[in-house]
């Protein structure tokens, strides 16, 4: 088993810094410190997992990067530009699929294109390809309510791909799904993100999932929300689910547990 878990040369394959946070702090109201003094530096093409118990500021960090909320202090840049509002090169996926019930799968996937301009045949072809990529060929004309929870999240992923955003923010996207569906989607997500070479920030409170997907894991602790540790994960890609039982993998699991356990 451990044979599949070869180490590779440490993170040399990533490009320059895409997301840069220095001492980022977010205080809600006067008293709730959701995120305190967060330093992070994310490079092009990297897959970053954010793991930690609920309330430790994972969603807050994501929404700060997305430009959905404003930081209280610190510096935060995306592609060397200060984040002030949402931008179309950043796409987002939520715990809920957030699909429009009155639109078929493909019409939902086309939504981002439609917001930007009139739909072209190119957009339609691209939407078909996105649905194919997430394994929904043949379901283009199904409505959300005709699809299972896992398939709805696949549509949401196809919609995210359709935006063409090269930074993807995912807030517990598979958190509401059952264990089997979640595992299968994780494997496919690993494959898809690899193909797209997008920079990804992935929030989860499942340690295995976080490590399996990530190039680096940001371990966060609550009260106040902090980045406690950043751990490198150097398994070759594409990854096989069997690495989860390897020794190296479990060493990392222990490291994450230790970091979280101290809090």
């Amino acid at each position: 088993m451990a044979a599949t878990a070869k180490k590779k040369v440490k993170n040399s394959s990533f490009g320059q810094t895409v997301i840069d946070g220095k001492n980022v702090t977010k205080i809600f109201g006067e008293t709730v410190t959701a995120l305190e003094g967060a330093d992070f530096n994310i490079r092009a093409g990297e897959f970053i997992s954010l793991v930690g118990p609920s309330g430790c500021g994972k969603s807050t960090l994501l929404r700060l990067v997305a430009g959905l909320i404003e930081k209280t202090s610190g510096d935060l840049t995306v592609n060397n530009e200060v984040v002030t509002k949402p931008r179309t090169d950043i796409g987002m996926m939520f715990q809920k699929a957030v699909l429009l019930d009155w639109r078929t799968a493909i019409e939902n996937v086309l939504l981002p294109s439609e917001i930007q301009h009139r739909i072209t045949q190119d957009d339609k072809n691209k939407a078909m390809a996105s649905l194919d990529l997430v394994g929904l060929k043949g379901f283009e004309f199904h409505f959300p309510k005709q699809l299972s929870g896992g398939m709805q999240q696949r549509v949401a992923l196809a919609r995210l791909i359709q935006t063409g955003a090269n930074i993807m923010l995912m807030d517990e996207p598979f958190g509401a799904l059952d264990e089997f569906t979640r595992e299968r989607l994780n494997i496919e997500l690993e494959r898809i993100v690899g193909e797209l070479k997008a920079t990804t920030l992935f929030v989860t409170h499942n340690i295995q999932e976080a490590i399996f997907l990530a190039d680096r894991v940001l371990v966060m602790t609550p009260r106040p929300g902090r980045i406690a540790k950043i751990i490198d994960v150097d398994f070759d890609r594409p990854r096989d689910i069997s690495i989860q039982t390897s020794r190296d993998f479990n060493i990392i699991v222990e490291e994450v547990r230790d970091t979280l356990g101290g809090h």
Partner: peptide, 12 residues
């Protein structure tokens, strides 16, 4: 709220 955030992120 989620739909609002989604529409914001796609630049609506």
């Amino acid at each position: 709220d989620e739909a609002i955030e989604l529409f914001q992120t796609i630049g609506a």
